[in-house]
Design a protein around this nucleic acid. Sequence first.
DNA 1: TCTATTGCGTTACATTATAACGTAAACTAC
DNA 2: GTAGTTTACGTTATAATGTAACGCAATAGA
Lengths: 133, 133
Amino acid sequence: MSTRGEIMQSKVLAVLKREGSALSAYDVLDQLRHEYPKIAPPTVYRALHALIEKGGVHRVESLNAFVACNSTSHEHALIMSICDDCGSVEENAAPELMDNLAGILGKTGFDAHRHVIEVHGVCSTCGSEDSTS
Amino acid sequence: MSTRGEIMQSKVLAVLKREGSALSAYDVLDQLRHEYPKIAPPTVYRALHALIEKGGVHRVESLNAFVACNSTSHEHALIMSICDDCGSVEENAAPELMDNLAGILGKTGFDAHRHVIEVHGVCSTCGSEDSTS
DNA sequence: TCTATTGCGTTACATTATAACGTAAACTAC
DNA sequence: GTAGTTTACGTTATAATGTAACGCAATAGA
């Protein structure tokens, strides 16, 4: 096990954790440039891919962005609630929903490998604020 | 009501329908170049956005691609099953699953506006084929 | 130490998507 | 029908996202 890549991975993860919201790979890149002025996209993407493998980071497909995993139990299929106001991303495990989904797809003969469940809307914090724009 | 944009929209939709699978905007562009040699990305994206508004086309977020809607009833929230072997995309309406999801999110105070439910895997056709690679 | 492996830095490029602007088509009113 | 308005088009340019490929350097194992 090489520990070589893990320095960069922990830096990337730290950046993502500092924000509660999803960041694009290039947002992460910009943050890391302070410490590593010559860093380039492949380095960031390599770290992100490794972190996704490990489950420490999730890709938000509908934003082309990345977010630190903050679910206590590392589920492999979860619901992501994305607030279009403030950008926050919440994770929810919902085993019954997954069972339900598996049932529906099972009937069609589809063999599911990966689930992307992303819900866009307004989080409770933003929703309860006065909408005095 | 201008009918002006609809010519291009119907061309784009025709291309997407000819394939059962998801196409990138640039795949569509290449197809249309036969008929419109000078067509450029904004034209295709404009048509795609209009078609998505109308419900004739869905965006596949996890592929950055587009697919013609083939569900009989135009549901506004559906499950897309994406075969990673052959690229085919199936739509399934699942009202109970949506209710289930709404229930889970309702408890968290999240107000859902748009659902992205995409399942990657292997379709029944590809799954039943001999895997003599 | 020697060697194999792995991931890094770097350059370059591929892919996906949009901004901005002038123009032409279609619609509206007269 | 013609003037004014709107709308989408074509065009150019560029932004944003993501990867291929290569040589090198660090680590691991013998």
